[in-house]
Nucleic acid binder design. Structure first.
Length: 211
DNA sequence: ATCCCGAGGG
DNA sequence: CCCTCTGGAT
């Protein structure tokens, strides 16, 4: 896909989803970004935002979280679902940050993914939001949308990530992640995408094949 | 009923 | 590759 086409697509997506980008991109310290993102699996950010104030009030640092009681963390995060595994993971992550990384969230992806509950997608969120490193968190939405449009044709999320990081201007990576996710949720659904409402349909490979 | 901005384990 | 973990929103 040509570079100017890519830029045009990004511009159109930006126009559609610019409203809520700010809060998503809001920088927070790596610890908060990391824990919030671990908790966000299979839930919405709304749900996570409801419980993080109390969580970070009680456990403002990795060290405090590492010493937390499982039952107490479970109580605070209960409403986000998968809470037993998440409680175990965030506590173990806090402890590992202290024991292996001197109390600071590691900045290398290879180190981050060793933390319990942290996969590649979560690590990439921390990289792009808190460390200002080029990265693209590829979740199911980003994977599907990028493949359909033709921004990144790939069989694995890792390949999608690699291609997107390469073609999207570095300064737009964080916002682009948000635009692609929003597009996946609002228009480009997994099941029945609403191509008639899609602002980038004219550039979309998937749409072309439908016709 | 069905899905959600995943990760870990078999 | 497929399963499981889970409450909440729609």
């Amino acid at each position: 896909m040509r570079k100017d086409t890519i830029l045009k697509i990004l511009k159109l997506l930006k126009k559609s989803y610019t409203a809520n980008v700010k809060p998503w991109l809001k920088k927070s310290d790596p610890y908060k970004t990391l824990i919030s993102t671990i908790l966000s699996a299979q839930t919405t950010d709304d749900q996570v935002d409801k419980i993080t104030p109390e969580l970070f009030q009680e456990y403002p640092t990795p060290s405090k979280l590492g010493k937390a009681k499982v039952a107490e963390v479970e109580r605070i995060i209960k409403s986000v679902g998968l809470y037993k595994a998440k409680a175990r993971n965030v506590i173990a992550t806090g402890r590992m940050i202290v024991e292996e990384f001197g109390g600071q969230v590691p900045q290398a992806r290879a180190d981050m993914v060793r933390l319990p509950g942290v996969g590649r997608k979560t690590a990439n969120v921390v990289l792009i939001k808190s460390f200002n490193e080029p990265a693209m968190p590829v979740d199911t939405h980003v994977f599907r949308v990028a493949n359909r449009i033709g921004l990144a044709i790939a069989k694995t999320p890792e390949k999608t990530e690699e291609q997107l990081v390469k073609i999207i201007p570095r300064k737009d990576l964080g916002a682009a992640h948000f635009w692609l996710i929003s597009h996946g949720r609002v228009i480009c659904h997994a099941r029945s995408p609403e191509c008639e409402r899609c602002s980038v349909a004219r550039y979309c490979q998937y749409f072309k094949e439908l016709k």
